[in-house]
Amino acid sequence: MNFNFLSPVSDSVLAHNELLSEQVLGKKIKIHSTQNGIPDLDGVKLAIIGVKENRNDVNYMGEELNFDTIRTSLYSLFPGNWHTTIADLGDIPAGSTIEDTYYALRTLISVLIENKVVPIILGGSQDLTYANYRAYDTMSPMVNIVNVDSNFDLGDASIEMKNNSFLGKIILEQPYNLFNYSVVGYQTYFNSQEEIDLMDKLYFESYRLGEVTHSIKLVEPVMRDAHIVTMDLKSVRAAEVGAKQKFSPNGFNGKEVCAIARYAGISNKVSSFGIYEFKTTYELDATPMLISQMIWYFIEGFNCRVKDDDFSNTNNHQKYNVLIENDELIFYKSLKTGRWWIEIPFLPNVNNKLKKHTLLPCTHEDYLEASCGKMPERWYKAYKKNSF
């Protein structure tokens, strides 16, 4: 497919890259340049894409986006013991209309996913998640989104979509492909009680900032079930980022967002990953380096992926049956990785989206609590959604 709408990585970034050690990441990846054009995707497993679109930001003041500082920082990092081929496809410029940008991004992501390439998207305003989601229309009847954010981004679906209201459009617009939506790190004072109640009513998952920072491992099973991961930089506390990016004194620290990005990379299901709400800076300050390290940890996680969810062979797992009142909960533990799943039963008389027994990622703690008579909340919400 022709991707002439992609603009190459700037010559200044490439010139800086030439001065770096031969061992850095910038010397190990395929880069879209003016001189060499768009790289061949043969063998590529991860592709970096910048999207210069921020016109649907509620605070948009006409500023243009530039990702040079992010690339300069990222290229200067040393790769881990990785076995995957990475490409930087350059940028999607802002189209004549916002819909043009959405169309370009949706088309590119569709082609990449069909070719088993995971896009790493740099934005831009977070409404680009909507275009990312629409790329799955022809591929998956059931999509799970995890949003690392201080806000739910539900908004009012009856008015024009903005970066703080894209989820409303995802929920209400056909085709209805969204099965689950999880928010990691929300801060209550940034969300109305009506939105909090609606998340519960729709059986979506939400994890408060304090809950996640108290035990970052909570994020792993949530990410294990995600297809799309979208990270809003406003979820990071102001002390961790540069002057232009400061939003709230509370939020994740750098170590925590990198751990979350790594969990996203480890997940076998995650097939697109985006970091949004970057504000252009021409200084090599904390923000570009933090984003670079988040990308680095996502790639690190991707290289640690293990296929451990094949339960057709009983030698691969242990099965546990737990009785809670009138329900029998069935847990599986992978003998390869020690990760846990819980079975969601198929309801034969319901026109639902799940047409078979579905295994929901969970934690060892979920099993222990079930053994003590407490119903796992993730199981309950998934079961109720399955009943629609």
Rank of each mutant, 00 (worst) to 15 (best):
M1P: 08
S7P: 09
D11S: 08
S12T: 00
H16R: 03
H16P: 01
N17H: 00
E18D: 06
E22Q: 13
K27R: 05
I29F: 02
K30W: 00
T34N: 06
T34L: 04
Q35M: 03
G37T: 07
I38W: 01
D42V: 01
L46Q: 07
I49A: 08
I49D: 08
E53Y: 03
V58G: 00
E63M: 09
L65R: 08
N66Y: 05
I70V: 00
L74C: 07
S76K: 05
S76R: 05
P79I: 10
N81R: 01
W82F: 03
I86C: 11
A87K: 00
D91V: 06
D91A: 09
I92Y: 04
P93Y: 09
A94S: 11
G95F: 05
G95V: 15
S96K: 15
T97H: 10
Y103H: 04
A104M: 07
L105W: 04
T107A: 09
V111L: 12
I113W: 08
K116E: 08
V117M: 05
P119A: 03
I120F: 04
I120M: 01
I121N: 03
G123S: 12
Q126P: 05
D127V: 13
L128N: 07
A131L: 03
Y133E: 11
R134F: 12
R134V: 13
R134H: 10
A135E: 03
A135D: 14
Y136E: 11
Y136I: 03
M142Y: 02
V146E: 09
S150E: 15
F152A: 12
A157Y: 15
G168C: 14
I171L: 15
I171M: 14
Q174L: 08
Q174C: 06
P175H: 06
P175L: 14
F179Q: 10
F179T: 00
N180L: 02
V184G: 04
Y186L: 13
T188G: 10
F190M: 14
F190Q: 12
S192I: 13
E194I: 12
I196F: 05
D197Q: 09
D197M: 14
D197N: 09
D200Q: 15
D200E: 14
L202A: 06
S206W: 11
Y207P: 12
E211N: 07
E211Q: 11
V219I: 15
E220H: 09
P221K: 10
R224Q: 14
T230G: 14
M231E: 10
E240F: 02
A243I: 06
K244N: 09
K244W: 08
N253V: 13
N253R: 06
K255Q: 04
V257G: 07
A259V: 00
I266E: 11
S267N: 06
K269F: 08
K269D: 13
S271T: 07
Y276H: 08
P288S: 05
M289V: 00
L290S: 13
I291H: 01
S292W: 05
F298L: 12
R305P: 06
D308W: 03
H317D: 02
V322T: 12
V322C: 01
E325I: 00
K336F: 07
T337M: 04
G338L: 08
R339E: 12
W340E: 13
W340R: 01
P345T: 04
V350K: 02
N352K: 04
K353W: 08
K355Q: 12
P361C: 10
P361R: 06
C362F: 02
T363S: 13
H364C: 15
E365A: 01
Y367R: 00
G373V: 02
K374N: 04
E377N: 03
E377H: 08
W379C: 07
Y380R: 13
K384E: 10
